[in-house]
Design a protein around this nucleic acid. Structure first.
Ligand SMILES: [Mn+2]
Ligand SMILES: [Mn+2]
Ligand SMILES: [Zn+2]
Ligand SMILES: [Zn+2]
Lengths: 138, 138
DNA sequence: AAGTTAATGCACTTCCATTGCACTATAATT
DNA sequence: AATTATAGTGCAATGGAAGTGCATTAACTT
């Protein structure tokens, strides 16, 4: 059994051919991807299958979903230490308004947020929009 | 000219009957509302008109759009001091996973976020999901 | 190998955002 | 006041993405 299949199995996801390929595809990316992006990479596979593959990955803590404010869900592999399933991994995300790419800034954790009395936080989403390093030319 | 019409005029929005009514409706709310919510309040008006009214309000800095992670855009009147047009008003938003309501926490400003070299921030969106004070019973 | 369970593919649906175009109201000009 | 120009409104239609039902196929269990 190869590396990827082992990772899937560890997360209780049966390593089918499709899933392995999707995982590989995600591992190649350095940005978060939309379902449509994955679809384009696998023209032969059905959208629904890819959709459910990603959803399964999400449920099992293999990827996390990112709402970058574009209205299109993005997905990215979780980092080795990430515990999305239990408690959300609280790094921030950056969406470039120039190249439209969304990246995980896994080193940049979300600061503690104070809330008014009576409010209970379960999850925090912090997205910074602006110009990425690739586009700002530095 | 009444209060509302004056506010609209100040923001360079011509105070039509429809716009005045929509403003009134928004002023009544204590939570952010979706276009569909506004639609329900004005069964006689067309959805498109309401849509464009809200968009106009947004462009002119009368309301700000909120992406609360539900996939449905919410809108709320800007506070008197808010300068959305120039620089985004950086308060945080709270979305209750129980009652599904989204509120502006205008007193809670978004902290300064540090970014890696080369990244330039233009806008920050911070949404906390959890249980609101009304639902937590305190 | 037979039976059971899970994954996949296709078709279809729903929901919201958005646009084009005709019509109407408002404002400006003569 | 009548005419012209501009802006707002309503209807119809489109588009994009998420999600579901069901039949088929593949994978695992015994
Ligand atoms: Mn991430
Ligand atoms: Mn707000
Ligand atoms: Zn960029
Ligand atoms: Zn609530």
């Amino acid at each position: 059994m190869n590396e990827i299949d082992k990772k899937l199995t560890d997360k209780e996801v049966r390593p089918t051919a499709m899933r392995t390929l999707v995982y590989q595809q995600l591992a190649k990316q350095n940005t978060a991807v939309a379902l449509t992006d994955i679809e384009l990479a696998f023209t032969k596979a059905d959208r629904t299958t890819l959709y459910r593959t990603v959803k399964t990955f999400e449920e099992k803590g293999i990827v996390h979903q990112i709402d970058d404010g574009t209205g299109i869900s993005k997905y990215a592999l979780c980092e080795p230490g990430c515990n999305c399933e239990i408690e959300n991994d609280l790094h921030l995300h950056f969406h470039c308004s120039n190249c439209d790419k969304t990246v995980c800034l896994t080193e940049h954790k979300i600061p503690q947020i104070s809330l008014p009395d009576g409010y209970v936080a379960e999850d925090v989403n912090l997205v910074v929009k602006g110009i990425c390093s690739g586009c700002s030319g530095s």
